[in-house]
Simulated assay, not measured.
Amino acid sequence: MNTRRPILVLATLVAAVVLLVLLIHLSGVRADQFLHALSALGPYEMAGCLIGFALPVLIASIKWRSVVARVMRPPAVLPGFRFFVHFSALSGVLGQVITPYAAGPIVRGLATKRGGHGGFTLGASTSVLEQFFDAWASLIFAGTGILLFLTGVSPQIALVGYIFAAIIGAVGVQVILVLPGSKVLGWVGNILPGQRERLQNLENLRTQTELINTGFVNRLYWLSVLRFWVLGVAVIAVASTFGMDWSVLGLLHVYAAVQITRFAVFTPGNLGLAEWGWATVLSLYGWDFATAALFALTFRAVGLVFTCMIYVFAALGYLVPDGRGRGAATKSDDPR
Rank of each mutant, 00 (worst) to 15 (best):
R5Y: 11
L8C: 00
A15F: 13
V17I: 15
L22R: 14
I24D: 02
L26K: 04
L26M: 04
S27H: 07
V29G: 08
F34R: 01
L35M: 13
H36A: 15
H36S: 14
A37Q: 06
L38H: 02
S39C: 02
S39Y: 10
S39V: 08
A54P: 00
A54C: 09
A54H: 01
A54Y: 12
P56E: 09
P56V: 05
P56N: 02
V57A: 06
A60S: 15
A60H: 10
K63I: 14
W64Y: 11
R70F: 05
R73S: 11
P75F: 11
P75R: 04
V85D: 07
G92E: 09
V93E: 10
L94A: 01
L94D: 02
Q96D: 01
V97M: 14
V97H: 03
I98A: 04
T99K: 03
A103Y: 10
P105Q: 10
I106H: 08
G109Y: 12
T112C: 09
T112D: 05
K113D: 13
K113I: 03
G115T: 06
G116S: 07
G116M: 14
G123H: 07
S127W: 13
Q131F: 13
F132R: 02
F132P: 06
F133R: 04
F133A: 00
A135Y: 15
A135T: 02
S138M: 14
S138Y: 14
G143C: 13
F149P: 01
F149D: 01
F149Y: 10
F149K: 00
G152I: 10
G152N: 07
L159G: 05
V160W: 13
A166F: 11
A166R: 05
I167G: 03
I168H: 04
I168N: 05
G169T: 11
G169P: 11
Q174A: 04
L179M: 01
L179C: 03
P180C: 02
P180Y: 14
S182K: 07
G186A: 03
W187C: 01
V188D: 14
G189Q: 10
G189S: 10
I191M: 10
Q195C: 00
R196L: 13
R196D: 07
Q200A: 14
N201W: 15
L202D: 09
E203T: 07
T207D: 08
T209S: 15
T209E: 04
E210H: 11
L211Q: 11
G215F: 12
V217L: 05
V217A: 03
L220S: 00
S224T: 11
S224R: 00
V225C: 14
W229A: 00
V233Q: 08
V235K: 03
M244V: 13
M244K: 01
G250K: 04
G250Y: 08
G250A: 06
L251V: 15
L252H: 07
L252Q: 01
A256G: 02
A257F: 12
Q259C: 01
T267C: 10
A274R: 12
A274F: 08
A274K: 08
E275V: 09
G277P: 10
T280G: 02
L282P: 07
Y285V: 04
W287V: 06
D288A: 01
F289C: 00
A293R: 09
F295E: 00
A296I: 08
A296E: 06
T298C: 12
T298H: 03
F299M: 09
L304C: 04
G323S: 05
A328Q: 07
A328T: 06
D334V: 13
